[in-house]
Amino acid sequence: MWKAAVDCDHKYDGEFFYAVKTTGIFCRPSCKSKTPNYENICFFPNAEEARKEGFRPCKRCRPDLLENTYDPHLEIIEDTKKYLQENYASNITIAQLAMHVGVSQYYLSRTFKEKTGYTPQMYLSTLRIQKAQELLVTTKENSTEICFQVGYQNFSSFYKQFKKICGCSPRCFRTEKGRKGN
């Protein structure tokens, strides 16, 4: 059990839990938190036993959740996506985003890209362009007005990103969608 805890071996998740006496926290064997000293660790067959002994669940590996395949990264990804969807029109920096989610900038960028295939900035750009597409089809506003509404600071960045994602200019997109809609 000690080896499984040191190796962060997910194969043993659900088989046992370990608790750290000095912190009062219990974890899954796969927890990526700092390896405790051997003399400060004790093992339990289930989470309930650890709680009975006064240990609280780790906030990183969430041993209190029933499913053994809990992935703490998914919560970070979902929080990041939700924040970006609700604030896409704002000028968002990776530092602000990381602070909101509660992790470091590096950890957020690396985890988000690993799980989604995109950086948070790429995801934000895609959201903005999707919203711009919607506005181009549903409103009479011009491309410049839409550019600022969806959070771009200048038209050239908007135009370049729009063309990169859509394969055409905003004007061509509006014209094409207008023809298909009639």
Rank of each mutant, 00 (worst) to 15 (best):
Y18F: 15
Y18G: 04
V20M: 09
V20T: 13
V20L: 11
K21F: 03
K21V: 04
T23H: 07
I25V: 15
I25T: 13
F26C: 00
R28M: 00
S30G: 06
C31D: 04
C31V: 06
K32D: 00
T35V: 13
T35A: 13
N37E: 10
N37L: 13
N37C: 06
Y38M: 12
Y38Q: 10
I41K: 01
F43D: 04
F43T: 04
F44S: 02
F44L: 02
P45M: 06
N46A: 01
A47R: 03
A47G: 04
A47Q: 09
R51L: 06
K52C: 01
K52L: 00
E53I: 01
G54E: 02
R56H: 12
K59G: 12
K59Y: 07
K59F: 10
C61N: 07
C61Q: 04
P63A: 07
P63S: 02
L65G: 03
L66A: 06
L66M: 05
L66H: 07
E67M: 06
E67Y: 03
E67L: 05
N68H: 03
D71M: 00
D71I: 00
D71H: 00
L74A: 01
L74D: 02
L74T: 00
E75N: 09
E75K: 14
E75Y: 08
I76H: 05
I76F: 07
I76G: 08
I76T: 12
I77C: 02
E78R: 07
E78T: 10
D79E: 11
D79C: 12
D79F: 09
D79K: 15
T80C: 15
T80V: 15
K82C: 09
L84S: 11
L84W: 07
L84T: 08
L84F: 09
L84R: 04
Q85E: 12
Q85N: 12
Q85T: 07
Q85V: 02
N87P: 01
N87Q: 12
Y88T: 11
Y88V: 08
A89K: 15
A89E: 15
N91S: 14
N91A: 10
I92P: 08
T93M: 06
T93H: 08
A95I: 02
L97F: 07
M99H: 14
H100D: 11
H100Y: 14
V101S: 12
V101Y: 05
G102M: 14
V103Y: 15
S104P: 14
S104R: 15
S104A: 15
S104V: 08
Q105V: 10
Y107L: 13
Y107F: 11
R110T: 10
R110K: 14
R110G: 02
T111F: 03
T111P: 05
K113Y: 11
K113C: 14
K113G: 14
E114L: 13
K115D: 08
K115V: 09
T116H: 10
Y123W: 10
Y123C: 03
Y123I: 04
T126G: 05
L127Q: 10
L127F: 05
I129G: 06
Q130H: 06
Q130G: 06
Q130I: 01
A132F: 08
A132S: 12
L135D: 08
L135F: 01
L136I: 04
V137R: 05
V137P: 05
T138I: 03
